[in-house]
């Protein structure tokens, strides 16, 4: 278990992480979500013992993180690259050695991981000869080569084509099955929604929501409705004007609405049936992660603004 316990970190007087607490468990994927500059990378660096918290503790399997825990962690940072003049296989072996593998084991692991990310052919190539996607797969292998019990991936899919994304997702799923803790930082909501078991939403250094993804969604209720119909959609404008729904998306005969306040799906269904020629889709669902994100971060921002104005 990875525990972030009331951690605070300041840089140059700016509060980057403000009393953050959350946990990530073995065999589960935690999505760390937040806008740019929210404090995600700051937290990940403290977990990796690159920087130390000003207050609070980061614990991995019960031990406070330090030099000893570094070997148990695989890290793919957001700012990443490869040594320009080093062969791919040598880079893998080097990092594996730094992570504590013996020379022979490191070489063997390098070969296995090149195969795992379908990169055997580039073994003796230098990064300058590789495409960006290929480099990214090598960086991904660098994070996993020593079979870490905690895998941290910061924006792992950015700029990756769908085929390689699928390959990486498969590997991540395998590590999860093997019982590793996986922490996945991103602001790509769809991907987080697809992959993660738990989420942790962070903005301006504070944790806004943390917990099981399904539970979080339930908390927000079935407040999103997709409509498909023939006929006039004027009734939607009326509802929106009355402040009962907010229009998320709209096309000819389609709409996605968010129900506001206490307006219930049943009421919307009645209104729709009364106003359109025929209703062929009515789908009330949980909000997407994207909506939760926008709503929560927006609300937190407003609250902060209000406090600052008040002060």
């Amino acid at each position: 278990m990875l525990e972030i316990d009331n951690v605070t970190k300041r840089y140059n007087g700016t509060l980057a992480v403000d009393g953050a607490s959350f946990t990530a468990r073995s065999g589960r994927i935690l999505g760390l979500l937040g806008p740019n500059g929210a404090g995600k990378t700051s937290i990940l660096r403290m977990v990796n013992n690159i920087t130390k918290p000003d207050a609070g503790e980061v614990r991995l399997f019960g031990d406070v993180v330090g030099r000893a825990t570094q070997h148990a962690i695989g890290y793919m940072p957001e700012e990443r690259g490869l040594y320009k003049q080093m062969k791919v296989v040598d880079q893998l072996t080097y990092v594996a050695r730094l992570k504590g593998l013996a020379k022979q084991d490191a070489k063997k692991a390098a070969g296995e991981w090149l195969a795992a990310v379908e990169a055997q052919d580039w073994r003796d190539k230098r990064p300058t000869e590789l495409s960006r996607g290929m480099q990214q797969k090598v960086q991904f292998a660098l994070a996993l080569i020593h079979a870490p019990r905690l895998v941290i991936l910061d924006e792992p899919f950015s700029g990756l084509d769908p085929i390689n994304s699928v390959l990486m997702e498969r590997v991540i799923a395998e590590r999860k099955e093997a019982g590793a803790i996986i922490v996945f930082a991103s602001h790509r909501m769809e991907q987080v929604e697809q992959l993660c078991d738990d989420i942790c939403l962070i903005a301006a250094g504070r944790i806004l929501i943390a917990g099981d993804l399904a539970q979080v969604k339930r908390q927000f209720g079935r407040n999103t409705v997709q409509l498909g119909f023939d006929g006039e959609g004027v009734f939607i404008d009326r509802l929106a004007a009355a402040g009962q729904v907010q229009v998320r998306r709209r096309g000819t005969g389609t709409a996605e609405l968010q129900l506001l306040d206490d307006y219930q799906p049943d009421a919307l269904l009645e209104a729709a049936q009364a106003n359109v020629d025929s209703l062929h889709q009515f789908n009330a669902s949980y909000p997407s992660l994207r909506e939760i994100f926008l709503q929560t971060v927006g609300a937190a921002k407003d609250a902060r603004q209000a406090t600052e104005d008040g002060a």
């Binding site: 570094q70 990443r80 690259g81 992570k99 660098l142 994070a143």
Partner: peptide
């Protein structure tokens, strides 16, 4: 400078001081 310019620094200092 290579560590910074190649963007390997963060991976390496996550393993060694």
């Amino acid at each position: 400078m290579e560590e910074k310019s190649s963007r390997m620094a963060e991976i390496i200092v996550a393993s060694v001081g």
